[in-house]
Structure formats: C-alpha cells, structure tokens
Amino acid sequence: MKKARLATLWLDGCSGCHMSLLDIDEAIIAVVQRADIVYGPLVDAQEFPVDVDVAIVEGAVSSQDDLEKIKRVRERSRILVALGDCAITGNVPSMRNRFLVKTILERVYVEGADAQKGIPTDGVPTLLKQAIPLQDVVKVDLHVPGCPPSASAILFVLNELLDGRIPDLGTKVRFG
C-alpha cells in the first residue's frame, strides 16, 4: 500500500502541540511505517510540498507570512487538521486582539526596550490586525482542541486518519 503523506505546520503557537505529538513516544514508529512526514519542524524539507494527504497545523494565523503559508497548505493538502486551541480559537496569541498592533509593538520594542529602541522591520513578517483561528481564512476538516491536545487524542486522530476515517472525537478533547 502506498504510504500516506503527512505534513505538520507551526504558525503562531508555542510548539506545545508539536511536543504533544512527540509525546506519543514509540507509537510514532508505527505512524511513520504507514506515513511519510514530508514537511514540518520535525523534518528537513524547505518548501511545503504538493500532494499532501494530511496537514496538521498548530498555531493561530497572526502574520502575513502565516496567512500565505496556511493558504498554500490548504491548496496542497487533502485534509487539514487544526491542532490545538491557538489554531481553533486564537487562544493566547489572540489576547493581543484588543489592542492596536502599533500600540503593542511600541510597548515591547520602544517602551520596553533597554537598548536599540525601535520596531523591527527587517526580515520579520508584518503582523495582521488580529491573531485569528485557521477557519477564519481556510476550510478546516477537523478540529482537535486542547492546550495542548493530549498525546492519546493525537494518536487516535492519526490512526483514524491513516485508516481513512475522519475521527469522531466525541468527548475525548476539550478547550484548555
């Protein structure tokens, strides 16, 4: 049987969801026997490839760069999974949404800086007005809430998806 093509993406999150994915421990061996991880922080690929079966996305959409990435990922993936509260609700990154971007940047990089005061512009993507859930900009096929979702929930999701089913999470997961 042809191996499934699995990709992961890390947007505006703390990487905790990826850590929780690694927390499935040795079960990852069984997963990579059934699927190739073709992109993500855990592997080396530079470009998000085409023809991905399952893309698992951590983090909110907070910058222009996030926005372009998630749109490309949607175009190139059959199933898009929002993993964790940041990708689903905005979560902690969205706590800035009540303030103007300019106000936050000034607070951090001007008022809050001891040296080299000034808002960085070189090599950093422009922030969007708000940090938003994935589903505000792309179609999401499955939501797996949690901060982070438990390793057992992630493993259940992976196994179901690799078996060709969209998992019914029922009461296995919750916000927070």
């Binding site: 509260d85 997961v173 919750r174 916000f175």
Partner: peptide, 24 residues
C-alpha cells in the same frame, strides 16, 4: 482563554462544551 484561566479544568462552561462535543 481556557488554557490560562484560573478555572481551567473546573469550569462549567468548559465542561459543558466537552459534554456536548463542541470542538470548535
């Protein structure tokens, strides 16, 4: 923002969402 809420894990709103299968 359940993850940073003092009531995380002990909240009736959060628990009801889980009970009713609200994932998003």
């Amino acid at each position: 923002i359940c993850s940073v809420c003092v009531s995380n894990g002990h909240c009736e709103l959060q628990a009801l969402a889980q009970k009713l299968g609200v994932t998003h």
